[in-house]
Design a protein around this nucleic acid. Structure first.
Lengths: 212, 212
DNA sequence: ATTCAACTTACCCATTGGTAAATTACCTTA
DNA sequence: TAAGGTAATTTACCAATGGGTAAGTTGAAT
């Protein structure tokens, strides 16, 4: 069944491998240009294959998008979840742990982040709904974190918490974008850089208050 | 010349007014869905007009985009520039002043921010180049600010400065996005909220350092 | 009635998502 | 080793969408 003892009909690249190639290429294209601006032919061309093969393997363009979305969504969700769970004493603070987990999860597929946050998805489509599901799930995790942080700071306005959630997401997005533009940087180097930046922000907020 | 003493041919809405309507609608559509996912017909429909009118008034789709880009680019550039210039003693710190200026400049055209940061622009096009010009100009202003901040904090790595620039831009983007989802909030309310959030971030970074 | 800006109808054509039918190349088996 | 089977893949096509244009139509002011 899963092991078709026969090896007849083995032209070209095995389907499983080809599917992986296609998914990788599609994820990068979708992430880089957005759903609408991405053409199926371009993805096919990247893999060195023609359009109908993608359709046979994955169905329509939207199905292909979903096939890209699900793995990265689950991966990110899981990474963030476990990163937030392990609050050891004298471990790095939660935001840094989350960032570090993010970089590790996105290593080799950095553009995938933007598959989740694609504004060109046809509104009302299945794809848009599923992407929203993952975004919300991640946001819920972030919400827990930011709420806790704001509580520590004594702020209670729920809108403030919501805005902080957005701000945090935007920060992550920006750092991933910077990372994409600096391909040589390892996930660990990114984590260290973020630690430095947070440290800098800390001292800045403490000292400068008049002119900055 | 500019005042055609004759008033013959005055059917419908005067051209100048119509052009304003179209630009407003186009800016919102481009900002909301991105260049590629926006159709000229959709913009026309929003104004209650048909496609050829847009072409007659503005030329092609890309020209229309440029007609949206230029005003908002200049406006933002100017707003940020003047906000960074006025460093009075006991004025709000620079980041807050910039944010405040941003919200004021974007009032009534919040989606315009995303016209500048549209990843779906056809790479290599005039539109992409012009958008990049504005982005770079704004980034240069931001670079001056972040470099100064990092210098204060004692960090010297130029890559760190670049990353911080990205982070700051991402923060602004996220806050604008939140603002779009909360239409009732005034620019001033947003500025106050940002002040609160920065304050909260300050106390958080000062106190929590083990578990957070 | 004429004029002229404002505006539309009706069309063209390139791109692109999608499909049906063939074809290639490897493997097995007689 | 020739025949058959099957997975992998392509060629050739269709239909819809969307940017763009040419030519006409409307209607207020003169």
């Amino acid at each position: 069944m899963t092991t078709p003892s026969s090896k007849a009909g083995t032209k070209g690249v095995p389907r499983a491998d080809r599917e992986r190639q296609i998914l990788a290429a599609a994820t990068e294209e979708f992430g880089r240009h957005g759903y609408e601006a991405t053409t199926v032919a371009a993805i096919a061309g990247r893999v060195g294959v023609t359009k109908p093969l993608l359709h046979q393997y994955f169905g329509g363009k939207q199905d292909l998008y979903l096939a890209c979305l699900d793995p990265i969504g689950d991966r990110l969700l899981d990474a963030i979840h476990t990163a937030m769970a392990e609050h050891d004493t004298d471990a790095p603070p939660t935001p840094l742990r989350v960032l570090s987990a993010l970089f590790t999860a996105l290593d080799g597929r950095r553009e995938a982040w933007f598959v989740l946050y694609d504004p060109t998805l046809p509104s009302g489509s299945d794809a848009a709904r599923r992407a929203a599901y993952y975004r919300d799930a991640i946001d819920d995790l972030a919400a827990a974190g930011t709420a806790e942080l704001l509580h520590t700071a004594g702020t209670t306005d729920p809108l403030d918490a919501d805005a902080l959630k957005y701000a945090w997401r935007g920060l992550c997005t920006a750092l991933v974008r910077w990372w994409i533009n600096h391909p040589d940087q390892s996930p660990e180097a990114m984590a260290r850089r973020c630690a430095r930046l947070i440290e800098a922000a800390h001292t800045i907020l403490s000292t400068g208050d008049g002119t900055m």
